[in-house]
């Protein structure tokens, strides 16, 4: 069903969008930036942060929740709304630790970015700040609830995307807090979806700290090594070590990952990795050079092939190797050894 189009003006630009499009979506599609902290394109709209205010006919409205109406005149950057936004961010900062220096999220923090953009060095408002005794029972996710701006993205992603509802808001007013039921029974799949949507440093991967932030980090797009979903992941690499895994939102997995994809990358740098070719002599493995190992293997294969024929040799390939490697492996057995004795575990 084709939607009716509605026309409006955003900052004097004529814009036409399908009916039901919000002002925020319409503006962002035009490349007009409206800051927002609780809004997330893949989650429901709750309008909690109030940072995305714009001016419509002289009235401040939240752009994330207000649909464009025919003939609307929208101003996203009038002094009136800019000042309101600045002060709302100021209010948020009045209850936020000023520890960007050591915060894992520095450089990648949406709140920090807004503080920078509005140049809020010292907040106009100040007062009591929340402080919590951090309870650390979670092996994957580091929670610093003082940094939580109660935007609710984590709560929404846990319910709407993951379907787990492990966390929700508790208490009210200033004491509002995101936590598991009764602050104890965390029934969590540790998918880390909450970590991926958190705009601040309130939720970060435990293993990320203090391996590196944004400086000198190489990002490599690749595919998750676990199940067959083929989720797209981005490896963050510093000093030849994977320091965290993220996922981009515009892929088949929409930026979502599971506990393995997001957190189980340590095996790559495990000290138990095999580092040298090994040949068993007298029942014990001895480290040898590649040349020695490969010559030995080739020689033994040749001997066996000569003695029993090529079909006395078989190969098992791996569902965790690449297409190219699997191709080369079967080619090796078929062309170099001369047998079709090749299988892999996918058959069961």
């Amino acid at each position: 069903m084709k939607k009716r189009m509605v026309r409006c003006r955003i900052n004097d630009i004529k814009v036409e969008v399908p009916e039901g499009t919000t002002i925020l979506e319409a503006a962002r599609a035009q490349g007009i930036y409206i800051p927002a902290l609780c809004y997330h394109p893949k989650l429901s709209v709750t309008g909690a942060c109030r940072v995305c205010l714009v001016e419509v006919d002289g009235v401040a409205v939240v752009s994330c929740a207000t649909p464009v109406e025919e003939g609307m005149t929208i101003i996203t950057n009038s002094p009136y709304v800019e000042e309101l936004r600045r002060d709302i961010i100021d209010l948020i900062l009045s209850d936020h630790p000023y520890d960007c220096m050591v915060c894992q999220k520095a450089g990648d923090c949406e709140l920090q970015e807004l503080a920078y953009f509005y140049q809020i060095r010292y907040p106009r408002f100040s007062g009591r700040k929340r402080s919590y005794k951090t309870k650390d029972g979670n092996p994957f996710i580091e929670r610093e609830m003082e940094k939580c701006i109660q935007c609710g993205r984590c709560v929404k992603v846990c319910d709407e995307i993951q379907g787990v509802c492990a966390i929700d808001f508790a208490y009210k007013g200033f004491e509002l807090k995101v936590c598991p039921p009764f602050e104890k029974d965390l029934d969590c799949e540790f998918c880390g979806q909450c970590v991926s949507v958190c705009p601040t440093g309130a939720l970060v991967g435990k293993d990320w700290i203090p391996k590196g932030r944004q400086m000198n980090i190489k990002q490599v797009d690749t595919v998750c090594p676990y199940c067959g979903c083929g989720c797209n992941i981005t490896l963050h690499v510093s000093r030849n070590e994977i320091i965290r895994v993220t996922s981009k939102p515009d892929t088949l997995n929409e930026g979502w990952l599971c506990v393995k994809g997001r957190f189980a990358y340590q095996f790559v740098s495990s000290p138990e990795r095999l580092k040298k070719p090994l040949i068993k002599r007298n029942g014990r493995f001895e480290e040898v050079s590649w040349d020695t190992a490969l010559d030995f293997v080739a020689q033994r294969f040749k001997e066996i092939k000569d003695k029993y024929g090529p079909d006395a040799i078989a190969g098992l390939s791996s569902a965790r190797c690449t297409n190219e490697e699997n191709y080369l492996f079967q080619k090796f057995l078929r062309a170099a050894i001369g047998t079709n004795n090749i299988d892999h575990c996918a058959r069961y």
Binding site: T222, G230, N232, R273, L274, P277, K280, A293
Partner: peptide, 29 residues
């Protein structure tokens, strides 16, 4: 004989996922 191999993060190539999608993997470390 045991031959030490590279992990997924240490090589270039392609994987094909369950929906027949061929995707690149890239050497990161």
């Amino acid at each position: 004989v045991v031959l030490p191999a590279a992990s997924f993060a240490e090589k270039d190539g392609t994987f094909t996922n369950t929906e027949r999608r061929v995707q690149r993997i890239r050497r990161a470390v």
